[in-house]
Structures are given as structure tokens and as C-alpha cells.
Design a protein around this nucleic acid. Structure first.
Length: 200
DNA sequence: GCTCCGATTATCT
DNA sequence: GATAATCGGAGCG
């Protein structure tokens, strides 16, 4: 029997089709595994919300490469977030992994996240997810079929899929390109982008 | 060089 | 709701 879904096949379609199908995927890094419950799509150079909007740079180069690799970026001086690069090569499409439920290695994940409330908060929010899984700049560009860091698509599409606006963007927040599984307590809270106060 | 500000989070009121 | 923490990318001159 072939693997339920080959990662490379899955990532080849339009990113708005790929993103919801990644719900239920398991992202594993060593002893810690996370079932993804919330994602966002970033579609090519014409998406003003995408890091690739203004073309390829050293930072976003991984997004322009072949699908199946992990694009990790550093933001706010302290946080990492990770994306799955989608195809085809040359088109900078990616899906941001926003939240999930830790399904293996809970103790290790919790030790990386102290202090934290309940286990459902371990990977709630994109930066928290990376921390729980110990993903940082060292994993940028990693190919997700190669242990110890792998992404396994679900056997069947996730039930109760929902869509809504993306989180935290000032530009292009309006297309409903955020996808999550209804009823999952690990899904992050929606916050509209804040406009920073300017000094007088 | 220098400045602005971000695909965030925790913590305060 | 508001803000600090903290730093590198990107734009501008």
C-alpha cells in the first residue's frame, strides 16, 4: 500500500487547495510531534501579505525553491515561525503553520515552553509551535521528508475545516486564507493587526 | 548608515 | 485594550 498521501504530490496544487489539506498533518522533530490544527496560505509574489511580495532576498530564498522544504523566519527580535514551501519551484508559495496539538513528547515540549498553562497551549500560535518543536534558523530550508524533521500528511482530510481572515497582517488580511479545524482548543486566538502608535 | 516596523507573545490594567 | 521585549530586513538617502 502506498503512503497515504505523498507530501510532494500534496504540495503541488494551488496553495489555497493545499493549505486546508495540511490540517491534520503531523510535524515531527525528533521526539516531539505536533498535529497541525491551524494554517495560513501565502500565495506568490502578488500577495501583499507575503514575505516574497517584493521579490527574492537572502531571507526568503527558501520560499522560491522546490516544495516540501521548511521556510523558517525570525521576527519581533525573539520569535521563529515556520512555513511549508509549496510548489512549483520558482513560485514563492507557502503555508504558515500557526498552531497544533502536541501528540508525542509532551514532557519535552512542555520543558521548552515553561511557564505555560495547559498542554493545549504548548503549540498555540506560530511562534509557540516552533518553540515547542525546537525549530529555529538551523532548520530553515530543511526538506520535510528527511528525519529528524518530517511532515506527514493526514490519511483523510480533516473534518470541520473552517476559513477566515489571516492573523496579524496590516496588508491583505481580508482574503479568507486562514484555515483551522473547528473545535480544536489549540487553535490560536484571532487578533486583528495592531497599528503601532507613532511618537509625536 | 539610519529609521521604521513586523506572518508575535506575555503581562499589565 | 495596551505595551514591552528585542533584532534583523527592507527602504531610503
Amino acid at each position: 500500500m502506498p503512503p497515504s498521501t505523498d507530501l510532494r504530490d500534496l504540495l503541488g496544487g494551488p496553495v489555497l487547495d493545499v493549505a486546508p489539506r495540511l490540517l491534520g498533518s503531523v510535524l515531527r522533530h525528533g521526539a516531539v510531534a505536533c498535529r497541525i490544527t491551524e494554517v495560513e496560505a501565502y500565495d506568490g509574489p502578488r500577495d501583499p501579505g507575503s514575505h516574497a511580495y517584493r521579490g527574492e532576498t537572502a531571507r526568503n530564498a527558501v520560499m522560491f525553491g522546490p516544495p516540501g522544504h521548511l521556510y523558517v523566519y525570525f521576527t519581533y527580535g525573539m520569535h521563529y515561525c515556520c512555513n511549508v514551501v509549496c510548489g512549483p519551484e520558482g513560485e514563492p508559495r507557502a503555508v504558515l503553520l500557526r498552531a497544533g496539538e502536541i501528540v508525542d513528547g509532551v514532557d519535552l515540549a512542555r520543558s521548552r515552553r515553561t511557564p505555560v498553562g495547559g498542554d493545549r497551549q504548548l503549540a498555540r500560535g506560530p511562534a509557540n509551535l516552533c518553540r515547542a518543536l525546537a525549530i529555529d534558523a538551523a532548520q530553515n530550508g530543511h526538506y520535510l521528508t528527511t528525519p529528524p524533521l518530517t511532515l506527514t500528511p493526514p490519511d483523510a482530510p480533516a473534518a470541520d475545516g473552517r476559513t477566515g481572515p489571516r492573523v496579524g497582517l496590516r496588508l491583505a488580511a481580508e482574503p479568507p486564507w486562514r484555515f483551522w479545524s473547528a473545535g480544536e482548543p489549540s487553535v490560536s486566538a484571532y487578533r486583528p493587526a495592531v497599528t503601532r502608535r507613532r511618537e509625536p
